[in-house]
């Protein structure tokens, strides 16, 4: 009976100290989790910009008639825009002909930031236009018609700036 009482005091002491230590570390741990996720997803967002810029460059370089389609398995806007489970990309993705850049914005609210942070990747052509997707050219198809590089995507997802 005495032994049990002693164990009880020891357990209470150890548990109390453990709780104190855990409480003091919990913020730092959440901070590090958010830091790692934010950096990783920031890299993912840049990969999206790189994917689109590379695709535009490839279509531009291969000349009239060349086209490629970024299927949903490569560019899934639902997953990309999900802040909790996805990448937290803010649509539309901007294709800027004047600056020759593909610009992707990210929601950084997990680390307390309001608004969006942008990352951009350079592209070669400055004659990119957007058109709504069709049955022949589904979202997101990129096609060279000899005059322009056409991106077939909804205007809420991709916006081309002259």
């Amino acid at each position: 009976m005495d032994s049990r009482a002693q164990v009880s005091i020891e357990v209470a002491l150890v548990a109390g100290i453990a709780i104190l230590v855990a409480v003091s570390l919990v913020n730092i741990n959440f901070e590090r989790l958010n830091l790692a996720r934010e950096l990783g997803e920031g890299g993912e967002a840049k990969m999206v910009a790189t994917l689109i810029a590379t695709s535009i460059n490839t279509v531009h370089a291969n000349g009239a008639g060349f086209e490629l389609t970024l299927s949903e398995s490569k560019l899934n806007f639902t997953e990309l825009t999900d802040v909790d489970q996805g990448t937290g990309i803010i649509l539309p993705i901007i294709i800027d002909n004047t600056r020759r850049k593909v610009i992707v914005g990210r929601n950084m609210s997990r680390t307390g930031h309001k608004g969006q942070w942008n990352v951009s990747v350079s592209m070669v052509p400055n004659n990119v236009v957007r058109q709504d997707p069709t049955a022949r050219y589904p979202e997101v198809t990129i096609r060279n018609n000899g005059t322009n590089v056409i991106v077939y995507a909804d205007s809420s997802k991709v916006r081309v700036v002259p």
Partner: peptide
């Protein structure tokens, strides 16, 4: 110690996110 640890984390995050190419304000 907690402040120094957090400052290291924050500085590393800032360096990482700018290193990837994210812009702050109008400076790219």
């Amino acid at each position: 110690n907690k402040a120094l640890s957090a400052a290291r984390d924050g500085a590393t995050f800032g360096a990482g996110i700018r290193g990837v190419g994210y812009q702050s304000g109008s400076v790219e």
